[in-house]
């Protein structure tokens, strides 16, 4: 028990550091960068619920991000830019994301996994086309700007709100994956036939997992557009999905801290590459670099940064335990 408490002490210490950060280091770009990292951390964690915990590959995660993004921007622009509307828009986005992910899941999660992957790709492509064509609402690829709620004009307030969301989502997802339900998700990933033979209706587990992931991704979308005060169809493009995938894989699938670390690595790298790109235009093609990082990560860190560290740590613990046992046996 003592160990668990220590863990949560570390956790709240880190949270405290980030709460105090903008007051200590008064740098607007840093605050904005961290805000973005937090938002993508939520997105990547939601993706990891599918990929790392349930073993489902989705190529359509961008659409859920997009639902949140459009729900929030359209409502803030067309109703008014109050905080109430903002909260309402988050809920609207989540409900849409929940319904769509539920339907997709129910339709295709019974099939083999690659059908689900292809189907999500197709459906998200469809919604992307819808967003392009429904210009009266979305203004297509040109997009539109809108006003954020007054209170968020102070970047620090928004930063703190996003941090609050991240912590909340992290704690809820941690509870989710460590619940009896979450343990079955992991079992599904490990061996679905066996899970069924134990009497679990695996289809429901997969559907719930995809709904939870979709809803959380929608929250990330809502937050993202407010940070930009702008929306266009790129928020629904496949790049968003690839980003989430990359962050999850680099950080470490099957953990929740992994995607957060992955989001930080990718966003920091992007940020620095875009500075470099001012002198060396080749760095504008950052996707090439991420392609390379991705390949290297898969080869050398198949479990991601956090997964590899965790393995090392547990390996050491095991060795220590064995050494202790041997000592006992000898005695």
């Amino acid at each position: 028990m003592g160990k668990i408490n220590l863990k949560s002490v570390y956790f709240w210490l880190i949270v405290l550091v980030f709460v105090l950060f903008p007051f200590v280091i008064d740098s607007r770009p840093m605050t904005i960068l961290l805000t973005q990292i937090f938002i993508f951390a939520i997105l990547a964690m939601s993706y990891d619920i599918l990929l790392g915990y349930t073993g489902i590959v989705s190529f359509g995660h961008a659409m859920f991000f997009g639902f949140g993004a459009y729900a929030t921007s359209v409502m803030l622009k067309n109703i008014d830019s109050s905080l109430t509307v903002f909260f309402l828009s988050i809920i609207v986005g989540m409900v849409i994301a929940g319904i769509v992910s539920f339907l997709i899941g129910l339709l295709t999660l019974r099939l083999q996994s690659h059908f689900f992957a292809m189907f999500t790709l197709a459906v998200s492509g469809l919604f992307l086309v819808l967003a392009e064509k429904w210009r009266s609402l979305t203004q297509g690829n040109d997009g539109f700007t809108f006003r954020a709620p007054e209170i968020f004009s102070d970047r620090i307030n928004f930063y703190l709100f996003v941090l609050f969301c991240l912590v909340l989502v992290f704690l809820l997802l941690r509870l989710f994956v460590n619940s009896p339900f979450g343990k079955v998700l992991i079992a599904v990933k490990e061996n679905e036939t066996r899970t069924k033979a134990l009497g679990y209706k695996t289809i429901y587990y997969k559907v719930v997992s995809s709904v939870v992931a979709g809803v959380a991704a929608s929250l990330a979308g809502s937050l993202y557009v407010v940070s930009l005060r702008f929306v266009n169809t790129s928020m629904m493009a496949i790049d968003v999905t690839l980003n989430a995938l990359l962050m999850t894989i680099i950080g470490g699938v099957g953990t929740l801290v992994g995607p957060i670390v992955g989001a930080a690595i990718i966003e920091l790298a992007k940020h620095n590459l875009s500075i470099l790109a001012k002198t060396y235009p080749i760095f504008e093609r950052w996707i090439i670099f991420f392609g390379i990082i991705y390949i290297l990560a898969v080869i050398f860190f198949p479990k991601g940064v956090v997964g590899t560290l965790k393995e090392k740590w547990e390996g050491r613990k095991m060795v220590r335990q064995q050494a202790m046992k041997q000592k006992e046996d000898a005695a």
């Binding site: 619940s179 979450g182 061996n191 036939t193 719930v208």
Partner: peptide
């Protein structure tokens, strides 16, 4: 046919969880 990356204990615990019909509990730690 077991769950290869889970611990021995967790493999067995999952079976008991099913027998106890704890199927959809998401809001408590296991």
């Amino acid at each position: 046919n077991v769950f290869p990356n889970l611990t021995v204990l967790e493999n067995v615990r999952l079976a008991i969880q099913s027998r106890e019909k704890i199927y959809f509990q998401m809001l408590r730690y296991f």
